[in-house]
Design a binder for these strands. Structure first.
Lengths: 201, 201
DNA sequence: ATAAAGTTTAACCATATAGTTGAATTTATT
DNA sequence: AATAAATTCAACTATATGGTTAAACTTTAT
């Protein structure tokens, strides 16, 4: 049993990388095995099938994605620093896992029902605290009236979109990779202002 | 030569549907043939290979996506109605081609360099007129200072994100498909306000 | 009407790919 | 040390899949 955890971890790491990069359909078991530097049979020994391995990776990816965001949404912070923290969290996550957002978006659309099951299993819930916070801000009239769901979707969308649209942005605005990175750094500062301004009264 | 155009069109329509739904890696030539209601050999007779057929579909998809948006961006309209038009254009496009945005995002990230080539070939350019318009608005101080690129990316991101994140939105906010559609209708009205407010002085 | 060109079809091929098997090796248990 | 259990590996299998071929059929041109 000595190497079990190590091998299993190795496989999961490799599978995560390949699946997140290529998606389920684009990934090859052989490629995952090569990446993990093991025999292909090991994948089946530890996870039985491509589908099972994928589901594990997908679930882990969801767990990597949602709770961190929800934690920030429900944190005990004033609105402005919370938005700043949220944007920063997204950009940090992207730096560590550049394919994660697009992977989740692509795969959840391939199997929406399975995705919903997964999310329910992870026990993710509506960010109630944040909704309450927004309602309070609206009542104390520091914030214009807006559906809290819209606000959440806008904030997340504004954070995620430039990350998954990178080739488009680089092309349309004629940026190279360095310029894109620099653009993101600027944006990290500007985006909270945009969001706050959008809901200011 | 009688049926040539019809058959070719049939194939392209089917390929567009399957590729946009499943992506390149997920699509099967047999499935495309079935969808087009023809023999699999015909795909190769008309397009030689899966890759060639895909590239045609992908290029067509880009042509379907970008020019329409850029046309609105560069149209002779005041800022507010232009934003409204832009949001509306996106939502209409999504109604007709629900998989188009996610398809383009996924595939352009799989082959960023090829994507850049394609875009250059279609002759798409930076929306100069719109950039000038924004600069003018900023100088006449009806608009706060913002990088025009940020403004464009934010507007497009806010339009696209709720369309590609549908399963996530339905899950987190416990909506069924009807409620989601209703939410989108509401959003079509609210989003321009959010954007305008975000850049108001 | 006939030949040439274009189109369609069914049967086939080569390869890629997920998955299996059984033996060899290593590790844990007594 | 001996046995049992877990792990690793190379070779293999079945099937899916992109692609080919040659013959049949249809349309166009002369």
């Amino acid at each position: 049993m000595s190497e079990e955890l190590q091998t299993e971890e190795q496989i999961l790491e490799a599978a995560k990388q390949i699946f997140q990069e290529q998606g389920f359909a684009g990934a090859r078991m052989q490629e995952i095995a090569d990446e993990a530097d093991i025999n292909k049979s090991m994948l089946h020994y530890y996870f039985r099938s491509k589908d099972k391995l994928f589901q594990k990776v997908f679930q882990d990816s969801i767990r990597q994605f949602f709770p961190e965001i929800l934690k920030v949404l429900n944190a005990d912070l004033a609105l402005v620093p919370k938005i700043e923290k949220l944007v920063e969290t997204y950009y940090d996550m992207f730096k560590k896992h550049p394919h994660l957002p697009r992977f989740v978006i692509h795969e959840m659309n391939q199997h929406p029902e399975r995705f919903k099951e997964f999310v329910k299993n992870t026990g993710i819930e509506i960010p109630e605290l944040f909704v309450k916070q927004i309602r309070a801000e609206m009542e104390s009239s520091t914030m214009r009236k807006i559906d809290p769901r819209e606000f959440i979707i806008n904030t997340i969308g504004l954070s995620v979109f430039p990350l998954i649209a990178r080739p488009m942005i680089e092309t349309v605005f004629e940026m190279n990779d360095d310029q894109y990175q620099h653009f993101l750094e600027q944006r990290k500062k500007e985006l909270p202002k945009f969001i706050i301004n959008a809901v200011k009264k």
